[in-house]
Design a binder for these strands. Structure first.
Length: 352
RNA sequence: GGGGGGUUUCCCGAGCGGUCAAAGGGGUCAGACUGUAAAUCUGAUGGCAAUGCCUUCGCAGGUUCGAAUCCUGCACCCCCCA
């Protein structure tokens, strides 16, 4: 319900209990891909700190927890100091207090689950050490923390979080094909780091892949390996197979040769829409409208620009004419048309 | 409670009565180059039935031939004093 101020330049939105529960419900299935919740005594456990914070009275909290936090120490924490140094944004007492909550959570986890180590991104350092300090004062125990550097791209930006290029683990938000493509497109400069960060390939293997990559970067051996490993991890072998098939179809074979079965196989994975056949009547469907329908342009104006600038393709053939209309004559693999905007953004339209 | 500053198109940030759909930068999209790369260069960047029409400058009113720009009220944010 209360956000962590670290890193963020603005106040967080406060979430309602319902929103939080929905978020938690959404996170759990994703974590299941990476953690075992049913591994006997060492199973992963997902807890909600609302369970112990929710009924904690303000006075009790100040007495039992707040008392142990010297404000002068809190003020020296990077997360707090950076916020105070900004003149355009302040820091509310609520957010300032976040550190106490997270520290207390650590103590609770120790009490309830014997948790002794807290791991997180480096922006969590202050919060983690606050928890270690609190545990020592309250329980007289030594707890531990470990952080890793936040992953940024070679140009300093955070990875996979930009507005347009956000990368989600949920296949409903980022399909296996899109997920795979994200990694295939990764900068050379970032491949090394990502292989080490995200895959559990052995050091030798990573070295070998990178060495091979160096011999001919154009083949992007490293990106391919990275994409394959991660897609399999997140979406399973099935997801990887579909992603590779779609990639092969779009970036390999001739579009004209496709069979309906092939297109059906990747239909759900590539941005796509089904349209009634009537749309093709009366001279055909204007490309501009088709681009919008396929989700390749947000508005007709944008679609028109794409076409005018030579970035629109129908079945991989440039369609630079605004008057270009789609007709059944453009069908490939039955009743589908492959649209493309730019070099690599594909969209599929299927007429029913 | 008092005083000051602020809220502009996706973001930052100019504009301070007409020439404003609104400078500049970022981002984004497209083109060239290339390797579905990076860097660089070029163009585009509110919507639409498009030499025009509609919507946008915190919200609601008002002044005016005309407002993002002036006035009033409201909301929210920031700073300082108490």
């Amino acid at each position: 319900m209360i956000g962590d101020p670290s890193g963020k330049s603005e106040e967080r939105n406060l979430l309602s209990v319902e929103q939080l529960r929905a978020n938690i419900a959404g996170i759990e299935p994703q974590l299941r891909r990476f953690l075992q919740f049913d591994a006997g005594p060492n199973s992963a456990v997902l807890v909600n700190n609302y369970d112990w914070m929710g009924r904690f009275g303000y006075l009790e909290f100040l007495r039992d927890v707040g008392k142990h936090f010297p404000v002068n120490v809190m003020l020296t924490k990077d997360s707090v100091r950076s916020r105070l140094e900004r003149t355009d944004a302040g820091l509310s007492y609520t957010e300032f207090s976040y550190m106490l909550l997270q520290a207390y959570d650590f103590v609770q986890l120790f009490d309830q689950h014997g948790c002794e180590v807290q791991v997180g991104g480096s922006d969590q350092w202050g919060n983690i050490t606050a928890g270690i300090d609190l545990a020592r004062r309250l329980r007289g125990v030594q707890l531990y923390g470990m952080t890793c550097p936040l992953l940024t791209k070679s140009d300093g930006q955070k990875m996979g979080k930009s507005e347009a290029g956000a990368l989600w683990l949920d296949p409903a938000k980022t399909s296996p094909y899109q997920f795979y493509q994200y990694w295939i497109n990764l900068d050379d400069a970032d491949v090394d780091t990502c292989l080490r960060f995200f895959t559990d390939l052995a050091e030798d293997e990573i070295r070998r892949v990178l060495a091979e990559h160096e011999t001919d970067r154009g083949r992007r051996t490293a990106q391919r390996r990275l994409a394959a490993e991660l897609t399999r991890l997140v979406h399973g072998g099935e997801g990887l197979a579909i992603a590779e098939r779609a990639t092969e179809i779009f970036f390999g074979a001739e579009i004209g040769e496709l069979t309906d079965a092939q297109l059906r196989g990747i239909f759900a994975d590539v941005p796509s829409r089904e349209l009634p056949r009537e749309n093709l009547q009366g001279g055909g469907l204007p490309v501009v409208e088709a681009l919008v329908a396929a989700g390749l342009a947000k508005s007709k104006g944008e679609a028109r620009r794409t076409v005018t600038q030579g970035g629109a393709y129908v079945n991989n053939r440039r369609a630079a004419d605004l008057d270009r209309r789609l007709t059944p004559g453009d069908f490939v693999g039955g009743a589908a048309i492959v649209l493309r905007s730019g070099k690599k953004k594909y969209g599929l339209l299927r007429f029913v």
